[in-house]
Amino acid sequence: MTEELIIAGFGGQGVLSMGKILAYSGIMQDQEVSWMPSYGPEMRGGTANVTVIVSDERISSPILTIFDSAIILNQQSMDKFESGVRPGGILLYDPNGITRHPERKDINIYQIEGARLAAEMGNTKIFNMVVLGAYLKIKPVVKMENVIRGLKKSLPERYHKLIPLNEDAINMGLKNVIAVQELQ
């Protein structure tokens, strides 16, 4: 199994940390992982993206142009990465702020209203965990118990009291993902 994923959105949405938690979860189940962020000037207040690969084998290129899955969290990223999803692959997006919805007919498309759900839960910071939950519902590349272990590893100890909240957010995502277009 190899999953090649791009997570793209605004800086501050938790794009990089979502990728990091996923990568740590992969390590927890003895898989190979890579996490390659964009680190250019665009990170300062603009778009941020990270390529995460989780695999049973040694990972070759950490930089990709074609992805098994894309998690897209703003319009700029939709414009940039919709075409990069492999035919038959997965595009998951939050419709909040999206003015042009995905148009591809040869991929599976899902929505998660992460921003709205996180706001309803009373903490917009857990937005990325809602989205992660939605992604794991569609593509369970890592087991939930390993995500929790991954969270423990990637969060400093002083934030460990927030783990149950993050778990709730992941479950919220799991329950609320909407299939827009599923291929046969």
């Binding site: 390590i27 992982v33 890579s34 390659m36 962020p37 680190y39 930089i63």
Partner: peptide, 10 residues
């Protein structure tokens, strides 16, 4: 290089 320096791996 910038790729190896900036990326995270196990």
């Amino acid at each position: 290089d910038g790729v190896i320096g900036q990326m995270m791996e196990k």
